[in-house]
Nucleic acid binder design. Structure first.
Lengths: 243, 243
DNA sequence: ATTGTCCAAATCGTCAACAATTTTGTAGAA
DNA sequence: TTCTACAAAATTGTTGACGATTTGGACAAT
């Protein structure tokens, strides 16, 4: 996941700690859609799965909750987050706000080396799409945006965007339309053209269009009903108060 | 701290949990400069101070570390973060990227009600400055930016900016120039004018100028040495290799 | 058939004790 | 004196157990 290069949150430790590994594994599982919104995460099961103590899992939960990727409900446990429609809209809005800036910076600081990097990534996207490997295609699609963020050289932005992309993954899982028309790979091509033009306004406009397109392909009117999802039907949380 | 209105991360819980309270108290202490970069945070001391168990403190540390407000070093403990020069530059760059967008949105969605809100805040800033209450002035200065973010109605952006402002507080603590020329209150006035103009480009430009001004008032060449900060004094890390 | 109550199982929340590690202090030899 | 080695203290890391809460099912009443 191209994570080996950057320094972790624990200065002074060079080898990956199991704590970080579990966190990363769960992030990957969310991107992969192996963990779907609403799923219950039982502490002891995960502890046994990863061969660590419950306390470790608990610590991981705190991190994930901080990223709003899971919900921690007191005495009930941890559940993969189920972003509301409002939340989804805000995430896309936030992404546009940030990625417009990213596109601007990348467009104005383009080099042959960087163009090559982007093209190489797009090739992988096309390959996955051609092979019908839908899962890999989705992941690569997210990593495309992350790659652009990385090219700005701003780690703060990169990390924030990474979390937003993860939340986007959950949003798509919840609100994707029945027939997934995944045409984002061609949109990424257009985006590359815009970036190569060198015009920041063009690049930003194309980025906005792309993100809006993703959002508009979703069904942000009603959530796909989960198992027994009265909560979403009535638009209130299961333990909501009267009046 | 205007936190009562918004929902916490724990859906279904209405009363503030001690866990959240401790977290908030530490954030306030960081903004307040009562916790300075490099300070060691001993688990048991804090546990006794807040009257909770060590485990609770430990959980709080994880959250703070995730926000990069403290450093967790294995077997060594928790230390208030000491942002590097590079980190500082990236934080300001990220803030500009985001707050440009904020300024644009606020400028184009201005109402008399909102203008009144902003003016009311500026009045408090001026009052604090007039009273020589430097501590409150700094806090209000940060909250000004947070207020603008809140006016965009995007909670995602608001929360992210809140963390960046906290990091900015640490950055200022580390790199502020000896004679603190705090003229940001007048800059906020200019910012208000720009916002009231209704022109997004004018607003964004003014915001950029303001953030750059804050950054340029710092001494981002060398950090001011902290309490027991021999590393920065001698320009090498404590565990530096010879040769 | 539905509702309501109770009980058992599962799960989470908390704590205190113990182990591991680092830091500090001390003594002894060159 | 200066360095090294070793021991003591302080601090963090981990575990396991226990209490509290929720969940699910059985069962009786309507």
């Amino acid at each position: 996941m191209a994570k080996a290069e950057q320094t972790g949150p624990y200065k002074g430790s060079e080898k990956l700690r199991p704590e970080e590994m579990i966190y990363q594994e769960m992030l990957d599982a969310i991107l992969d859609r192996r963990l779907e919104p609403g799923m219950k995460l039982v502490e002891e099961d995960l502890a046994k799965t990863f061969g660590v103590s419950r306390a470790r899992i608990r610590a991981t939960f705190l991190q994930l909750a901080h990223d709003k990727l899971i919900n921690l409900i007191p005495n009930r446990g941890a559940f993969i987050a189920e972003p509301t429609i409002n939340e989804a809209i805000e995430v896309f809005s936030a992404r546009r706000m940030i990625e417009d800036g990213v596109a601007r910076k990348v467009a104005t600081s383009m080099t042959p080396e960087r163009a090559k990097q982007i093209k190489s990534h797009l090739a992988r996207e096309h390959a996955a799409h051609h092979d019908g490997d839908h899962r890999t295609a989705i992941i690569l699609s997210g990593e495309f945006h992350l790659l652009l963020a990385r090219l700005t050289g701003n780690l703060v932005i990169e990390e924030f965007l990474e979390r937003l992309i993860l939340r986007t993954s959950l949003i798509i899982a919840m609100y994707e339309s029945p027939q997934p028309v995944d045409c984002s790979h061609s949109e990424h091509d257009q985006l590359l053209d815009a970036l190569l033009s060198g015009d920041p306004d063009v690049a930003a406009a194309e980025m906005s269009r792309h993100l809006d397109a993703i959002r508009d392909r979703l069904q942000l009117q009603r959530p796909k009903p989960g198992k027994t999802d009265f909560a979403s039907i009535f638009g209130r949380t299961p333990t909501s108060e009267a009046s």
